[in-house]
Amino acid sequence: MARIDVKKTYKLYIGGQFPRSESGRSYVVNDAKGALQANASQASRKDARDAVVAARKAFGGWSGRTAYNRGQVVYRIAEVLEGRRDQFVAELRASEGVAGAKANAAVDAAIDRLVWYAGWADKITQVVGTANPVAGPYFNISSPEPTGVVAVVAPRSPLLGLVSVVAPVITTGNTCVVIASEPHPLTAITLGEVMATSDLPGGVVNVLTGSVAEIAPWLASHMDVNGLDLTGVEDADLATSLEVAAADNLKRVRRAPAAEPDWLAVPGTDRMTDWLETKTVWHPIGI
């Protein structure tokens, strides 16, 4: 008799823990063939609220770490992901219905993307920071700093797209609350397991699964969220209303792209600089 396998319960990832939605709700996630893949937690506004609290709590420590250390942690995520690649290949094949080669390529690219961003941690300051030759006896230097808590609506691409939007946010010292792709949420939770075992402090990345239309407005209007990435918002009217809500506390907003980007392309620095503030410090030079 074949062994009965143990199925995984997909919960949320908040503050380093894997709680169920406080609402007790879940929704059916089907695989590419339309068969039940799993029940995902259907996060509520209160889960979103808790996730923001967790992200804010983690911000001081994470942003205060050295860039070198953040780079090491992001690299560690790549290492752990590499070790669990088969699981991700299987999940992608099931949820997206893609061939093994394509799923493998996506996992490769996701790992490589993490490595790419890990290397940026201690370089972005040198690339976008400036020493300013002011016309007076002052030392004057501008350096980028993380903007704070960023809410991210992840794109459809379950792993590579997700990694491509989350890695730049955290590499630069921000913390985030991510709403996973609504049709492909499971990989996001599995990636949460990777992050939870990669020296990433709890709360730096928080993953919600559920309805974007239900959860995103709460994050967009949340007064303790500093940035809003609308990359995964496919409904233009929803995107506009989220941007309007974000104006309540002048969140930095990255608008949704016209079409899903080619995630295999080498990124620019814009996904990092979107979540960076320039801080300029002056000091007199005298004896």
Binding site: G136, P137, Y138, P284, I285, G286, I287
Partner: peptide
């Protein structure tokens, strides 16, 4: 004498 408030040269100038 060393406890007197410092003088910032640039500000004083």
């Amino acid at each position: 004498l060393h406890g007197l408030p410092g003088v910032d040269q640039v500000g004083a100038d």
